[in-house]
Structures are given as structure tokens and as C-alpha cells.
Design a protein around this nucleic acid. Structure first.
Lengths: 156, 156
DNA sequence: CAATATTGATCAGTATACTGACTATCAGTA
DNA sequence: TACTGATAGTCAGTATACTGATCAATATTG
């Protein structure tokens, strides 16, 4: 009988579980209250002014129904503003606030330390190899989830 | 600036997301309605008669507050029975039903095909290496999540 | 340009995960 | 045995994820 430890699905779940716990612990110790998902969204909003929610979802591979709540919480924390888009009255244009920028800047060391802790059982070479293999498997499976990654031409 | 693709946390989330989608698609096509989490719980209950919920949680690294709902749903589907433990009046003794056994047997091909699809971008060697590195990283981080894996002496 | 299709956002409902609290019970010890 | 501490299970509350539906607005096309 196949052991759990031979199931990539089980290993995926477990690694993710640890990754989230480590992220929350590091960020929490640094005095911030931000989830991994909120962090990625905030960083992406900062990098792409006037981003709408669907495009944001595509850039970080979130489901469009999930992004609504994530942005809600970022807005509630005062890190992001949700305005009406000037080009499309259906869309919201997201903008990072000054406090969002400040938070992002101050939180970075904790985020990077979290990434290191997740890989602490591996040598640097192994860590690189793990990331390479994950990237490759993810690229091949991108279209299999409801929320695939979408690279977008943003200068439009 | 660090790209998402250099963040093990982001890759972990993404790989897990694809793994769950693939599992649900394969199992659904085979005519079953079972999540990855429910499947692992069911298989573990089958392998360990009279298992209590905390031990079950430890064997598959679920949070004890999560296991309640998972077992609820297995019971509701008629795949598991939740009895009073003969030894400890606090505990529940979980038993797989005949239908649970049948389901587990018939669902196995779909589960294995799902595991293969998750790795379809990788060669066999790369797939093995990915699992090895995940196992190693997970072992090092086991205690960092609220729901660590607990290997238990079950013949007690 | 009118009918149709598509798209951005949200909502209701379900299923993990986790935090923190609580009850009932058990185990160890003074 | 009475006290203390630990343990099994559950619950309320919050945050991802996803399914499927809906509404409003935009695009497409006959």
C-alpha cells in the first residue's frame, strides 16, 4: 500500500501548511498582521498601479471570488484603496496607500526570513532544486486549477 | 525585487492548489465525491481500527479542530462510523464501514492517476527528487505548524 | 444598431485550516 | 481521596479556495 509520503498531493499540502505557519509566525513577531495571501496581493498592487481585481487575481493565481475578500481586508486595514476604474465602469482600480507602502517596506525582512526557514532542512543547492522542480511542475499544471497564473501585458 | 517564483511559500501554495484541483477532477470523473483530505482520513481509519480522532489527526497532520468536520462528513456519507471508545469516555472510536471499504477500493485508480498528473511536467527522476526534497523540508519544519505529524505506537 | 456574448465583481454555500476557549474526562500525586 | 494537570472533542470566529449564480457593463457581430 502506498504511503502518504509517496503522494505528491499529501506532501504538497503539508509543505504549504508549514509555509503558512512559518510566514505568520515571522511576520507576527515583526509586529504585523498580514497573511501570505494578503502580502502577495499587496506587493502586486504596489507594482501595478490602477490594477483591476481580475488582473490581480491572474498575476498571483487566486480565484476571482477569493480576491474580493482579500482586497476587502487590505482596504479595511488601510493598506489599499479601491476606486472606480476610469476606463471600465465594471472594474475597480486598486491603489496602494502610503501606509501600505510603509508596511510593505518594513515587513520585507520578516518575509525573507520566513522563506529561509521553510527551507531550513535543505542545503542551498537543494533549496534551489526544490524551487526549480516546483516551478516546472506548476508550469505544466497551470491550466488545471480554476485560478491559473495569467501573465498580462500591463502597459496597455 | 524578489519575484513570486523565487518564494518557496508562493510555489507551495500554487502546487497545492493544482494538486487539489487535479485530485478532485480525477476522483470526480471516476464518479466519487471525496476530497483529498477526506480520502487520506478514510484510508487512515481503514488502516487503524478503533482509531480516535486526535491520533488520526496526528497521523495525517491535520489540526484537531479540522478533523471534527472531516469525520462529520465521512459519517454523513456513510463511509465511517463514530462510536464511543470502550477505553476512554472522552474519545470516539472510528471505524470504516463496508461502503467506506468499497469506496476506497474503487477510488484508488483515480487517486493514483491524480498523483501522476500532478507531476506530469517532470521526468520520473525529477518527480522522485521533488518528493525527496519535500519530505526533507517537511521533516525539518514539522514542529512549526500547529498540526505536526505524530507517529504513534498503535498497538498499545 | 440591436441582439448576443463576454467580462468584472460580488454573493451564497461548502470545505479546509487555524486561534482560542470550553466541557468532560482521565491520570498523577499530595 | 481530593487536587492538579493534561487530554479528547467540540464550538465560535476568521481566512483562504472553490462551485455556481447573478448583475451590470462592455464587446462583438449579424
Amino acid at each position: 500500500m502506498k504511503d502518504n509520503n509517496d503522494m505528491p498531493g499529501h506532501l504538497a499540502r503539508r509543505f504549504q501548511q508549514i509555509a503558512v505557519a512559518v510566514f505568520l509566525a515571522e511576520v507576527g513577531e515583526a509586529g504585523f498582521d498580514l497573511t501570505p495571501v494578503q502580502y502577495a496581493a499587496l506587493a502586486t498592487i504596489k507594482a501595478n498601479p490602477e490594477l483591476d481585481q481580475v488582473t490581480l487575481a491572474g498575476l498571483i493565481a487566486y480565484d476571482r471570488t477569493t480576491i474580493t475578500g482579500v482586497v476587502d481586508r487590505l482596504v479595511q486595514k488601510g493598506l489599499v484603496e479601491r476606486r472606480a476604474s476610469p476606463r471600465d465602469r465594471r472594474a475597480r482600480a486598486l491603489e496602494i496607500t502610503d501606509e501600505g507602502r510603509r508596511t510593505l517596506r518594513k515587513i520585507t525582512p520578516a518575509v525573507e526570513s520566513a522563506q529561509a526557514i521553510m527551507l531550513r532542512g535543505l542545503s542551498a543547492r537543494e533549496g534551489e532544486e526544490l524551487m526549480r522542480l516546483l516551478r516546472k511542475a506548476i508550469a505544466a499544471g497551470n491550466e488545471l486549477s480554476r485560478a491559473p497564473l495569467r501573465e498580462v501585458d500591463l502597459k496597455a
